[in-house]
Amino acid sequence: MEISTHDLWTVMHGMGFGALFMLAFSGAFAELYRMSVPGAAPMRASEQKALNFYLGAMVVLAWITVFTGAYIIYPWYRAVPPAGAVDLAEYPRQLLLSSARTSGWHNIGMEWKEHVSWLAPIAITMVAYVTMKYGQAIIYHRNMRIAVLGFTLAAFVATGISGTFGALLNKYAPVRGGGTIILIQGE
């Protein structure tokens, strides 16, 4: 059982950091909504601390996800094949563009994913900062709570778009190549 280094990075980017970030939204929405409803009781200090840590972890995951995507995996995706290359399996971008049936996955899917994904870490960093800075005092700032919930939703949508296209692109043109890591030696 083996895996290539490029595959491993892709898995870590999408199913590791990205998926963890995506999953974390359910908890963030629940807590941020709970402190936003009219008449909500102020949080305990320990609850506030836990929420701060939770949002801080989301910020770290979001930035790791976009940086690994853009600066480690994307260069492999957009690698240019040598002139006359027939087998494009290790050149996902060129593979997708080589057929009218798949070019849209690059022209719409990848082109949108590579940019819109960066909205998520910017938005969630703001959400975490405001929540940490104001803590329980946010109960006095209705518009701030609206912004926090709105930007959390926007980060979720941006992550959803990126994650969905990432998974589909990886089905049609997976990023392959690199060294081989043997996980378990076969019999």
């Binding site: 900062y129 800075k133 104001y134």
Partner: peptide, 22 residues
Amino acid sequence: SVPEEEVEVMSNGPGAAAILAA
């Protein structure tokens, strides 16, 4: 939980700056 009257009221400037910058 901390009673509401004990929660410090903060100016919204720093939060507004973070929101608009985002």
